[in-house]
């Protein structure tokens, strides 16, 4: 069984978002996603400063199984990327919600969070796949 923390919002494409009070969102991929991908070997991340729209392809995950696009669940400006993943992509397998975060972004439209799922809805979404 994969882990689905209650305090995050989820996209149907398996990214998660954690929003702080200051409107800074942290983005990663879910435990379900890393488990489906298998061992992750490389991750391509966007550059800080990039403006992205929700559902844009922002990153690529190369696992032993396949290359997968990662879509930004929310719009905004990329403030910081997790550079540790460039040399240690397997962190996403081990800690998808902690050390395995992908990037932080200054959200431009807080209303987009309403389009994302809460933990219960995401669990149902994964079960239905």
């Amino acid at each position: 069984m994969s882990t689905v923390p209650d305090n995050l919002r989820y996209a149907s494409t398996h990214e998660w978002v954690h929003v702080e009070d200051d409107g800074i969102a942290t983005v990663g991929i879910s435990d379900h996603a890393q488990n489906a991908l298998g061992d992750i070997v490389f991750i391509e991340l966007p550059e800080a400063g990039t403006i992205v729209n929700s559902k844009d392809e922002v990153a690529v995950v190369e696992s032993v199984k396949a290359a997968s696009d990662i879509y930004s669940p929310v719009s905004g400006e990329i403030l910081e990327i997790n550079e540790e993943l460039l040399d240690a992509a397997e962190t996403v397998n081990v800690a998808p919600y902690d050390g395995g975060w992908f990037y932080k972004l200054k959200m431009s439209d807080a209303a987009e969070l309403d389009d994302l799922m809460d933990a219960d809805a995401y669990i149902k979404h994964c079960d239905a796949e």
């Binding site: 298998g38 061992d39 070997v41 032993v64 397997e90 397998n93």
Partner: peptide, 8 residues
Amino acid sequence: PLNYGSQI
């Protein structure tokens, strides 16, 4: 069996 946890 595809893997028993980690292929690598």
